[in-house]
Design a protein around this nucleic acid. Sequence first.
DNA 1: AATGAATGAGTATTCATTCAT
DNA 2: CATGAATGAATACTCATTCAT
Lengths: 200, 200, 200, 200
Amino acid sequence: MSKLTRKEKERLEARTEILNIAARLFAKNGFHKTTMDDIAIASEWSKGALYLRFQTKEELFFSIIEDIVNDYLETLNTSLTGRYNLEGLIKIIIEKQFTFFQDHIQFFQLLLSEQGKALQASGNRHREIMMAKQKEHFDLLVVAFDKVLSPDNSVSSNTIAIALTGAINNHLLNWLLNHKTVDLQQVQQEIVTLMLHGVQ
Amino acid sequence: MSKLTRKEKERLEARTEILNIAARLFAKNGFHKTTMDDIAIASEWSKGALYLRFQTKEELFFSIIEDIVNDYLETLNTSLTGRYNLEGLIKIIIEKQFTFFQDHIQFFQLLLSEQGKALQASGNRHREIMMAKQKEHFDLLVVAFDKVLSPDNSVSSNTIAIALTGAINNHLLNWLLNHKTVDLQQVQQEIVTLMLHGVQ
Amino acid sequence: MSKLTRKEKERLEARTEILNIAARLFAKNGFHKTTMDDIAIASEWSKGALYLRFQTKEELFFSIIEDIVNDYLETLNTSLTGRYNLEGLIKIIIEKQFTFFQDHIQFFQLLLSEQGKALQASGNRHREIMMAKQKEHFDLLVVAFDKVLSPDNSVSSNTIAIALTGAINNHLLNWLLNHKTVDLQQVQQEIVTLMLHGVQ
Amino acid sequence: MSKLTRKEKERLEARTEILNIAARLFAKNGFHKTTMDDIAIASEWSKGALYLRFQTKEELFFSIIEDIVNDYLETLNTSLTGRYNLEGLIKIIIEKQFTFFQDHIQFFQLLLSEQGKALQASGNRHREIMMAKQKEHFDLLVVAFDKVLSPDNSVSSNTIAIALTGAINNHLLNWLLNHKTVDLQQVQQEIVTLMLHGVQ
DNA sequence: AATGAATGAGTATTCATTCAT
DNA sequence: CATGAATGAATACTCATTCAT
């Protein structure tokens, strides 16, 4: 059923391979300290080959983020298709976000390092795309919460979605900064409790 | 009672002035696109004068963050000294964080743009300092929550502190990205409700 | 009578087509800003096909000039074969140069843009060729003038040839630079008068 | 009477020195084959120092041409101020152009190598400047010829000016291409005769 | 013959940092 | 202390040329 010729497959593989290697370098050293030469050497492609696939260094960078974000949104969307009660929904959201980012820690770091940039430089195509993705993300969550909450719930689905993802992200960031010495399983459970019943 | 001579005062004023102007530039254009020339011209000091006060551009940058974080921690510490019940505590934390960052949006942006960097390059003095400050921040909150929660509360003070600050930050980030079109007053109230009683 | 096979004809046509298209690009954008990719795309041949016909970009470039110069010399030679008196000779030279370059403005521009290069880099095959062509050009004119001037004319045929072509070229250049707003017919007549009788 | 401080003098000297050395390199190797590194090394200034004085390589290049053209126009203007009859005028123009370019052969080569560029890329500031200078040049000559010719002369001063400078330039170019083996003194005399009385 | 993906040497420009004045 | 001219390492990007298919 594959519609990809051998050449197209190879091209896609090369692209993916480059993005993976570049992602590792960007995550490790940051955008500016990672040079196109670094990426070329690490990926064992020539610089010319990189520019054949990505017009600029920035485009290469955002391609990484875009790919992984798309991947995440797809996974999340699939998960949220099932039927949940409130507790189940919160649990699945937390679990998805935790497992996904454990699997893609370097992308998480990239994402964080770019959130600041999103606030700068308007009129930027990349900024627009990232904001659209962000909106898509919240929309998925809002729709899901709307299904399990009464319309006159005292806290809006939107507020819940933003607060929940913020709480999760902060925990993950904290976990990373503390060299992963925290028990994530327990943290997950506590966040569920917190979101369901509040602090007490 | 002042222990500062006139000279020392002038020195401090110059330093503060430079940091304020540099902060504006960094927040607007990012770390790399802001040059020492830009800062020199905007501050009306020579580049030499900048290097007299800050060894490197990076140090200047982190001086900004450090100053403002210290300022925030001091304010927060003072506020948390009062006596609160649980609701009062949550309210005051949210309020402090909201008002502080509304007053210092540019620092908030700087902070975000640098959170990613903190994850990189270990062995970095700046990274260590920032992490220490982060810890200090959470400690303040944890101590405060410990005072108002029973020791066997189902959610630990630490988890609450991290979740709360994450939720707040995400709301503020969202507010910035949406060009400040959200009613922050209402958001504050909703977060309080959410933290106190959970989503429902 | 044609000695060209179909294949050879096709080969020649392709070559001519490429040279024409490349000439347009070179004239419009200059040697360096015109890339082999540009030429490949515009000519609808692959880059490989270009390199099959021309060893280097420079050779392609000089092939254009050489072709057109050969063409010009042939035309001029044919014209000068006829019998003229002095006035007729001057008129025909001016007319040929004018009409030829009106028909091939882009080549004229190329020629100019390369005259400087001819002064550089000795030991260059292209330079040698161009100088040989230049000499051939002057020789044609000198021979023609020698036929209509007495051997002890106060101005040598060589001097006349150089001065005349220089005067014509400068007028044409001026005409181009002034966006063709000058009446070339009248200029032609004035040059004839000038050459025949001097300024007054 | 000098209004230049020592610093200003040094700055001007450095600029002139750089332009002289760069001119030699550009004339020898052409615009593209001359790198900023070459100029930096030859001039014994750092690349940064070059960019302190000239915003781009192109600006450096045109500064050379502009300087020398200005110099020439000034010299010519001064010379044409005197009183001449027709023969004297033609002689002085030829002589000025000959001696000037013998003194500045490298600039002459530069000029030639750039005449082609002037035909390309409109909207270019440098192009505009060069065309203005060209016009200034012809205006000087036209005014001078108008003074010594009757208003109803059969050949216009403008045509004469263009033809004369073209003839001279072509002779100089020819002289350069023939490795200076021609007797310029005699050529000068012949051009005078040609312009005064025509070919015979 | 024809293709066009891959190569990698080559270069203009920037900017943090220094230091003579 | 203050200045800002000078430095030169660092880097994104281009494009003529090659060669496996």
